[in-house]
């Protein structure tokens, strides 16, 4: 069972993703912010991260840089309420960029694609 780490400062989003993704067959763990995120990743070894961009004390795009530099192949999906961050060149270090919605169909598709991605 693939383990997904959801990093989002909004509790209702963490709850929604936890419920829906658990139902979809994933093991879900959550973090309310980016505090010591790379250490947490090292410890929990998630297979994929869903990362919010705009959090109160953290910028998801900076966290993405840290994650990508340390965990080169770890899939990261940026999930945000705003389309505008796509214009930030840093966002292309993510596997996918998904706009937040209560319908998780697109997010689930991207999760499946990111987990299937394989380079020998």
């Amino acid at each position: 069972m693939a383990k997904i780490l959801v990093v989002d400062d909004e509790e209702h989003i963490r709850l929604l993703y936890s419920e829906e993704l658990t139902e979809a067959g994933y093991k879900v763990i959550t973090a309310a912010d980016g505090y010591k995120l790379t250490e947490r990743i090292e410890k929990e070894k998630p297979d994929l991260i869903i990362l919010d961009i705009k959090m109160i004390d953290y910028n998801g795009l900076d966290l993405l840089q840290d994650i990508r530099n340390k965990f080169y192949n770890l899939p990261v999906i940026l999930c945000t309420a705003y389309d505008t961050f796509k214009e930030d060149i840093k966002s292309i270090a993510a596997d996918f960029y998904v706009i937040k919605s209560f319908d998780l169909t697109e997010l689930k598709n991207k999760i499946a694609m990111a987990l299937e991605a394989n380079i020998p």
């Binding site: 840089q65 080169y72 060149i89 292309i92 270090a93």
Partner: peptide, 22 residues
């Protein structure tokens, strides 16, 4: 033999920020 086993794609790290306005 390599590419036939590749599925989808992955991003790379990005370097070089702080250059001011593009």
């Amino acid at each position: 033999p390599f590419w036939s086993n590749v599925k989808w794609s992955k991003p790379t790290s990005i370097f070089g920020f702080g250059l001011g306005e593009t």
